[in-house]
Amino acid sequence: MRAAAVQLTATTDRAANLATADRLVRAAAHDGASLVVLPEKWSSYGPPAELRDGAEDLDGPALTWARGIAAELGIDLVAGSIPERGDARGSNTSVHIGPDGRDRATYRKLHMFDVQVGGRDYRESDGEAPGDEIVLSATASGVGLGMTICYDLRFPDLFRRLAVDGARIIALPAAFTEATTRDHWEVLVRARAIENQCFVVAANQVGRHAPGLRTGGRSMIVDPWGIVLAQAPDAETHIVADLDLDRLQRIRTDLPSLANRRPEVYG
């Protein structure tokens, strides 16, 4: 299986974001990718007030386009995440769409990014409600696909649950800040891949989105041994890598850390 991660610099210009996503998803499919992952909030990204203005329903323009292009290109598309409109607070929502253009899974981000980092306060929970469900999907070919978003990367329990439940690939759409990308991103992505013996397809945003709002890029595809199969430069682009599922099985057989877990001791 060939997978791709799309990296872009989204702003509040939804038409421009969609045009860039369309170009890069088509390029990834042209390069042979059958699974493509877009970044977090690819449809609209900016300051909280403007982000709320860019929120959409699940049948809005962003996901309508995503369903159409998945069917046209015959790919599994993890449509990153979009700010989903809600009554009081919205959700940060990722949808996996199959090659038939139909939704295969919907995941709402579990962990809210309420932190202070790089001299800036982030209060994601002010405008978004956390999800309450762990979501394991599957590609059209039947490969277990775990759904996560950005800050979820710092919570290994979620990734472990997905792996134990059957994930062999974990999709990670992200908008990691520039500061945390530089110091933590690669370490965390590789750690989640190694400890769960999964492929991780991590699609990050990159660059300046608004005054004081920058993300770090370096989108990655990592194998179950922690080897970086592909990594993006600091630009809007896509990366591709072949996912050797037989190698994954050999790793899990030869070094059976998942099978050797002691949940009766530590839960």
Rank of each mutant, 00 (worst) to 15 (best):
N260L: 15
L213V: 12
V189E: 06
V206A: 05
G207K: 01
A259R: 14
D234W: 00
M147N: 07
A19K: 07
A4M: 02
P263D: 13
C198K: 01
P48T: 13
M1Y: 11
L153S: 08
L24C: 04
G142R: 00
G212M: 07
Q116N: 14
A129W: 08
C198T: 15
A29M: 04
H184M: 10
A241M: 02
V143K: 00
R123Y: 14
G119M: 14
W42M: 04
L51N: 06
D183R: 03
L162R: 00
V206M: 04
K109Q: 15
I170P: 07
A27T: 03
I170V: 15
D223K: 06
E56P: 12
E72A: 07
V115D: 14
V115K: 03
V222P: 06
P233R: 06
T64S: 15
L136Y: 02
P48V: 11
L229I: 05
L255F: 14
D87Y: 11
F176I: 15
P173I: 01
A179Y: 04
T180D: 15
A10L: 02
S257E: 13
V240I: 05
R214F: 12
E128R: 05
L24A: 08
A174Q: 08
T237H: 00
A179E: 15
E124M: 05
A70E: 01
K41L: 14
G119W: 08
E72P: 01
A241R: 01
Y107F: 15
G86V: 07
A19H: 03
N17S: 09
N17R: 02
V95Y: 01
L245W: 04
L172R: 00
Y151C: 05
S219A: 10
V187P: 03
G226H: 11
G80A: 07
A71S: 07
V187F: 12
H238L: 00
V164W: 12
R262F: 14
R23F: 01
L77G: 04
D13C: 06
V37M: 10
Q197D: 13
I239H: 01
P224E: 14
G80D: 06
I82M: 10
A49G: 13
L51K: 10
R104I: 11
Y45M: 12
L77T: 04
D234F: 06
D13Q: 05
T106Y: 05
R14W: 02
W42K: 03
A129F: 08
A174M: 12
